[in-house]
């Protein structure tokens, strides 16, 4: 992506069952941090942007504690895979697949994201 694009009013969208849902402006996302967005059905999504401006979206609910906090976790790269670590008990989740890196039996929903 180029700098010029960032200055435009790009929207972050994620794919739901019935089409693309606009969550927020790209500018609302700080590289390396997440935000939470509320979906029409009441579910919550954690949106992230990495330093290369790639976007990710996973369910905001931490499956280990039930709290809606994954958007507030720290992100990082592990073996070239982006992840977020839950701020509560620190389990890491792959941002592309939603898989928990510390417990193979657990995963969170991952969403397809795009800018438009």
């Amino acid at each position: 992506m180029t700098l010029a694009l960032e200055t435009t009013d790009l929207k972050v969208q994620l794919r739901l069952a019935d089409g693309w849902f606009t969550a927020c402006d790209l500018g609302a996302l700080t590289p390396g941090r997440g935000v939470a967005a509320l979906l029409p059905d009441g579910r919550q999504v954690a949106l992230f942007r990495d330093r290369a401006d790639r976007l990710y979206a996973v369910d905001n609910r931490d499956p280990f504690t039930g709290a809606a906090v994954l958007s507030r976790g720290l992100t990082g790269t592990h073996q070239d895979r982006p992840f977020v670590a839950s701020p509560l008990l620190k389990q890491r989740f792959d941002l592309i697949s939603g898989e928990c890196l510390d417990d193979g039996a657990v995963r969170v929903t991952a969403y397809e994201v795009r800018t438009d």
Partner: peptide, 10 residues
Amino acid sequence: GGDGCETCKP
């Protein structure tokens, strides 16, 4: 070039 991790960032 990566994003670091939850250990080194803080």
